[in-house]
Amino acid sequence: MTTDTVEPERTLQDCVARGTRSVVRARHPVNAPMLDTWADALGDPNPVYRDAEAAAATGRAGIVAPPTMIQAWTMPRLSALAATLPQVPGYAPYLAGASAHEGSSKNGSPDGRSTDRETDNPAAAVHRLLTAHGYTARAATRCRQQYHREAAVGDHLTCESVLTTVSPRKRTALGPGYFVTTRMIYRDQDEADVATVDWTVLCFRTPEPPAGAPDITTPDAAASDVGAPSAPADPASPTPASGRTCRPLTAAPRVGDRTPVTTIPITPTFVIATAFATQDFYAAHHDADWTRTSLRRPGVFTNILATTGLVGGVVTDWGGPATRLLEVDLHLLAPNHTGDTLTLDAEVTAVTGDEVDLRVTGTNSLGPHVRATVRARVTG
């Protein structure tokens, strides 16, 4: 351990040991326009997110929110993200709006409406500390969501978050950094549990390129360097929504059954639309220039919340509108850069009564993008 990491690591572990919990309320109740925007951006055809009659036909009282959307309700505001990562040029107009009540970072932690002071949020404090020590890049690596019930239109959610672990400094393919994990418990206006989320982000330093390495700040060199397709996407390629259906199963699920294959062209519009729909304003999902120069990536890439939604969609497309997601646990691997194509499918690994376990995999030109397990209740 070098001297420049000793003091940060002590402070990081102090933040974990404090065990301070912050509770914030979502800025808005669960509402139909946000549900429609999310479903539109992800191309999700499940009618229970938009059509009250279709939802009622599945035994629900009305339109419900996609369970995989849970974190979108309390994602950091632009001003909060700007305060945590002020080195991002695109955030400059929002710095004036940042305040001590909006300090957060791209860790899924709530922000904005908390009555706690900024320094009282250990997760935000950890991200500020790591940023100050040069660990300015962020990459979400794992998300486990457990759903206790579906959120419905009108529910006003709160989120209680606590920093659970910060790893020792690790060497990773992206650069040296720390894995920061936060647990978030979402509750409704009656204090009933809605979802529990364990969320891990790698805070890392982008390494300097080796001598003679291609200039990744130009799109052509960047694409060839990472193996992504250098040709533009075929304009005749299907949009994310085309080809996806959400219909009830015609036979009881069995171990070994496979879902239809879902193919998603990763266009700039898809990356930005899904980031907006999930309320994720991290620059790597919309600012190609900053992503190339600061993260040394070939361009913008999809966020983990979009991948979570797509993973859940693989299961609900297959199981039909009555399907209830119970848990999604995923690990992100190779990123989804623009110009690439993501292919997803799943295999049933266990059936217990009406509960089904599936293993979902997603690949692109770089290899595996996501590996996930999903538990769902599937009925006719």
Rank of each mutant, 00 (worst) to 15 (best):
W199F: 14
T200W: 01
V201Y: 04
V201Q: 08
V201L: 01
L202M: 10
C203Q: 10
F204T: 08
F204C: 03
F204G: 07
R205M: 08
R205N: 05
P207F: 06
P209N: 04
P209E: 07
P209I: 05
P210V: 08
P210G: 01
A211R: 09
A211I: 09
G212K: 05
A213S: 13
A213T: 07
P214I: 08
P214N: 04
D215N: 15
D215R: 11
I216R: 06
T218V: 12
T218H: 04
T218L: 06
P219H: 00
D220W: 00
D220N: 00
A222E: 01
V226A: 01
V226D: 05
G227M: 07
G227R: 02
A228H: 04
P229F: 08
S230R: 07
A231C: 08
P232M: 08
A233C: 08
A233N: 09
A233R: 14
D234N: 15
D234K: 02
P235K: 10
A236V: 03
T239D: 12
T239I: 10
T239Q: 14
P240S: 12
A241P: 11
A241Y: 12
G243V: 10
R244S: 13
T245N: 09
R247H: 14
P248S: 15
A251W: 12
R254Y: 10
V255F: 06
V255G: 06
V255R: 07
V255S: 03
G256S: 14
R258V: 13
R258E: 15
V261G: 10
V261D: 04
I264A: 11
I266Y: 05
I266N: 07
F270Q: 06
V271R: 05
V271F: 06
I272S: 08
I272A: 05
A273K: 11
A273S: 14
A273Y: 06
T274F: 02
F276R: 08
F276G: 08
A277V: 10
A277E: 01
Q279N: 04
Q279E: 00
F281L: 02
Y282T: 02
A283G: 00
H286P: 00
H286S: 10
D287H: 00
D287L: 07
D289T: 14
T291D: 00
T291N: 03
T291F: 00
R292Y: 01
T293I: 07
S294H: 14
R297D: 03
R297W: 00
V300P: 03
V300R: 04
F301K: 02
F301W: 09
T302G: 09
N303D: 15
I304H: 01
I304D: 00
T307D: 15
T308S: 13
T308C: 13
L310M: 06
L310C: 05
V311I: 09
G312P: 02
V314H: 04
V315F: 09
V315M: 09
T316I: 10
T316K: 11
T316C: 02
D317N: 15
D317P: 11
W318K: 11
G319D: 12
G319V: 14
P321Q: 04
P321I: 12
A322K: 14
A322F: 10
T323E: 13
T323I: 13
T323Q: 14
